[in-house]
Nucleic acid binder design. Structure first.
Lengths: 218, 218
DNA sequence: TGGTCATATGACCACCCGGTCATATGCTCG
DNA sequence: CGAGCATATGACCGGGTGGTCATATGACCA
């Protein structure tokens, strides 16, 4: 949790701090991210960081939370009214990909927390994030089974994990593949893409959910 | 590449070295793995490592290669005679999961190479490994489309990446979920599992490939 | 003006890393 | 017995890290 000192910072200074710290943690896995590098880029003293946050993990955890907060703020309400659950998935993952393009650094930061790490604190963070996605998908599946949109002979626990592989790692990889790059390359040189290329690449979410619909409908 | 000095080592000494190094690199991401830790556990001098291998990356790359060599050696021929491509997948991934249980440390090492890393050399290794899986799946899909086992309206490139998500991250996660653990926990305390539990957990490969078959068949 | 207090500073600490190299060891063979 | 050679050693190097703390700054108010 940031200290009051941090809250009291002049907004522009605070935002600059936030963005620079975000970039550092987005750049590489937690253990490689360097507080020293952040303060160097900002031109402030290292001690300042420790007046804002308890320690490195505290800063990282807050940034991860901030990534989530900004994403929901940026996307607005995601509820596309009750209806076909597959349409809901399509919309949700299309929004997710759109957000990835709009805010690649925040998105990458959010992915960093899912990486394995030796640090016990980071592992705890990761597990809780994974559990959240997993729970959401399990609930989606269970609801689908209740309404008849999903086969009833599929074990929900297995299903949630398999679907997560398809819609997380798989979808992102396919999306970036369509953009003609991979995650690393994209973030090293985020290029401005023509709108039609983006629109076409977003179509991969439909391909993925179509696949899923065929696999899951009774 | 290991030096001749390494090849000439007494077999038992060499194997001890290999296993200890493997455990260290399996324990944590490349950048955190420590040569110092390896030599400490082995009770040898650090200089010895550098008489066997050029540097840390050389050692890691060789271990990754060794993981592959031991896996194919351990599984024997994987070709289940020409037939249903889905049966082939089922067999391949069942074998893969079985191997994961039999050799969790080697398996985990093989997964480490797929993790993001700041190190340029490791990134190169990773990309080539990913490309190999990707190429294999693309070829599987193209062959399936030729023989009519796979829908022709699915773009092969998208398909390969989505399937990879489902069958790599998704399947492994579901498998470990059935065993009542996650990858970290399992490797920290690899428990001896009753045969029936293992057999039941292997069934998750069938669930995954069934899902895939529904999604991909014309 | 002088006192108070939040904020900012950066030298410093202990610790760890990968990698080097002069030196020591011990086996083999003439 | 030595000479020669492959092998083993570990102190040492330069460089990095997260984190600390005595000190300095400067805004505000009596």
């Amino acid at each position: 949790m940031p200290s009051t000192t941090f809250e009291n910072l002049a907004p522009e200074k605070r935002e600059r701090f936030v963005l620079e710290a975000r970039d550092e943690f987005a750049r590489c896995p937690y253990d490689q991210a360097s507080i020293t590098a952040i303060v160097k880029r900002l031109g402030i003293a290292k001690g300042s960081v420790y007046q804002y946050f308890d320690d490195k993990l505290d800063l990282f955890a807050w940034l991860v939370g901030e990534a989530g907060r900004r994403k929901v703020a940026g996307l607005g309400s995601v509820a596309p009214a009750g209806g076909d659950p597959y349409a809901l998935l399509r919309a949700a993952y299309r929004d997710g990909l759109r957000y990835w393009l709009a805010e690649p650094e925040w998105s990458r930061l959010a992915l960093r927390v899912l990486e394995p790490s030796v640090d016990a604190g980071v592992s705890r963070l990761r597990r809780s994030q994974e559990a959240a996605v997993h729970a959401w998908l399990e609930q989606w599946l269970a609801e689908g089974q209740r309404t008849g949109a999903v086969r009833r002979d599929l074990p929900v626990a297995d299903g949630a994990r398999l679907v997560r592989g398809l819609l997380s790692e798989g979808l992102l990889s396919a999306f970036l593949g369509r953009l003609g790059t991979d995650a690393d390359a994209f973030l090293e040189a985020p290029s401005d893409l023509p709108a039609h290329a983006v629109a076409e690449a977003l179509g991969v979410a439909d391909v993925a959910v179509d696949l899923l619909e065929r696999a899951l409908r009774p």
